[in-house]
Write a protein that binds this DNA or RNA. Sequence first.
DNA 1: GTCTATAAAAGGATAGAC
DNA 2: GTCTATCCTTTTATAGAC
Lengths: 231, 231
Amino acid sequence: MNSSTLMSVPTKEQILDAAERLITERGIDAVSLRAITAEANVNLAAVHYHFGSKEGLVHKVFERRIRPLNQTRLERLAAAERAAGEGPLDVEVVLRALIEPAIRLSSEHERGSQLMRMCGRIYAEQSAAVQETFDDLFRELVEKFRAAFARALPGLPPAEVAWRVHFAVGAMVHTLTESEKIKRFTDGACDTADTDALVERIIRFCVAGMRAGVSEQSPAAVAENRLEAIQ
Amino acid sequence: MNSSTLMSVPTKEQILDAAERLITERGIDAVSLRAITAEANVNLAAVHYHFGSKEGLVHKVFERRIRPLNQTRLERLAAAERAAGEGPLDVEVVLRALIEPAIRLSSEHERGSQLMRMCGRIYAEQSAAVQETFDDLFRELVEKFRAAFARALPGLPPAEVAWRVHFAVGAMVHTLTESEKIKRFTDGACDTADTDALVERIIRFCVAGMRAGVSEQSPAAVAENRLEAIQ
DNA sequence: GTCTATAAAAGGATAGAC
DNA sequence: GTCTATCCTTTTATAGAC
């Protein structure tokens, strides 16, 4: 109940938007509060009034995007588990619940691929403050998905499942953060613009990796996964 | 031909060692030259004498480790191509040439897992200076391996191959940089100490991902890849 | 809630003696 | 090659007027 009912955008949001934009482009340490407040057209002191410190601001920047994203993931996982009932849980469905919201959110969001890089960045940042934010935002997600993958791959030892999830997350994070690299190195032949195709590509890769050596694929699934599906 | 013949370790090496250690732990921006020279027990001005600037130092820190690493990778790839002659090139062999030296180097190197994280870090850093260093060190590697993978997977469109390499590199980089996360989240059940097992795990995952939907696996290879190989 | 002004610290870099 | 001393810039953070 503030006085901004008729204002365009509240200062707090302007700061968050500017910080998100700059941190996404340059990283946390490389962006000063002066750069953020200049970009947001607000006063330097406003940051400390609204967020207490740079650390507090950074925490909110990540939290604002990642909490709803992980909420979506958990809801999709819960829906998949309800649908499966007591029966088997499909690896691909679990993988999609984890990966698809992150990649797809970028094409729905107005700032495009920026958000994709944001979500990946927090995984790569190393400062103690960001680590705490990370643990806070991801612990529940990691535990529930690890359990789901273990259920979907009963033929594998739990440690092997955890490692494979680690590899799949690596593929996803790398895609979220470093996709301008693949564009550059392939002279534009690979682009992230076609979100649908990208989602199918990464899911296909990770499903195969998760199932490696596990003979539970039905012959139908194997056939469906063949070359005609690749463009 | 300097005067350090009888000295323990030349100043230049001490600075590089200290910088590598600290940058690995905290990242480039978070580490000051004062912290580096204190760790190395040398004078602050020595950095500018030997490397010109912080940027010059950082470049050398990465170059010192990554150039020989990539040299090893290219030699293994060349050997594989010689062995293949005019015949088909095996995806797994190419993948091993790319991934195994990076992961294995860590257990041979005295500072253990630090180097692993170093090699991955440069891929995630975003400053313009590091980007140039990256392009300088990786362009040849990327091009030769992409061509080799395309040859090993003739059934796939080149863009699809490039994407899959991107995903595999993501799994590798993530393993090099973030493996303390999996240790933490699994309460130690997953550890990076067993290098042999880790290499086999990640290779198995990536081979399956690279080959997804490609029916070129010989039945023997499929059988060999089954569950009995997983511990 | 927003602003100015300023504190207080830390950073990279360099000059010049030895 | 190495050291001390110092310059200059930038940074986060805060006090206090409005």
